[in-house]
Design a protein around this nucleic acid. Sequence first.
DNA 1: CTCACATGTTAAG
DNA 2: TTAACCTGTGAGC
Length: 278
Amino acid sequence: MPEGHTLLRLANELDAAFAGGAVRVSSPQGRFAADAAALDGARLIAAESFGKHLFVEFAGERFVHVHLGLIGKFDLYPGLPPAVTTGAVRLRLANDATYADLRGATQCDLVGAQKRAAVIAKLGADPLKPDDAAWERMWSRISRSSRPIGDLLMDQGIAAGVGNVYRAEILFRHKVHPLRPGKSLRRSQFQGLWADLVVLMEYGVQTGRIDTVRPEHTPEAMGRPPRKDDHGGEVYVYRRTGQECLVCGGRVRTEILVGRNLFWCPRCQPVFRSRAVG
DNA sequence: CTCACATGTTAAG
DNA sequence: TTAACCTGTGAGC
């Protein structure tokens, strides 16, 4: 689940459920037990996300820094926590109306304002936090880099919050081959791509899903059988290796780049062409 | 039941 | 470049 939209959505949910009141903090699994005890009963000030990082602020400039990694989850449930906890719950927040369980996160640390600021300072432009200066810094790096655009988009120091699904889908929607060097893109083209990414991710915040297929390209509209997505949303190429492209009918390809799977349609996303064609 | 794999990142070699 | 980590799920035997 965890790309930037998931974390902003999560921050919003935690904020709505807990901000402004005292919160019971515990660590049923034990790995966060000492810090949880120190925070137990403190007032929760706010929850905020930056890229894929989440900071839950408690009174006294204390922040719980959470990174979900690949498999982490932080789910909210109505009511009181169950008497018997199933699974490994690293961190649990609770009040009388709601509880939230954190499992499988790669990071769950109690930090101060300085550490928080240091983490945020390392992040690139965030599609969910519009900032012209940050955008220019990002473009400056991309437009001068020989690295593949697929690699650059996943570099959190350049573009924060973009993950493998949005990477694959935004490149498809803009007919850009993932292995094209950053410097081969034109400014206007990347501006269009980014603006579209902002829209897609804001939509993801609202829905909690990643849907990227335009109405005119849905399987129904194209007269194709419906396809099952095992990750909740309707997408063009992500994890569709070997399947027919919804737009041109070509076969979706995959290849590993910097340890992550790329997905693209070789017909819609040729290497040597910089302009989208419908 | 066991195994591979996953929307991620870091550290070691 | 590879392994390691955290957990859950789905495929295959």
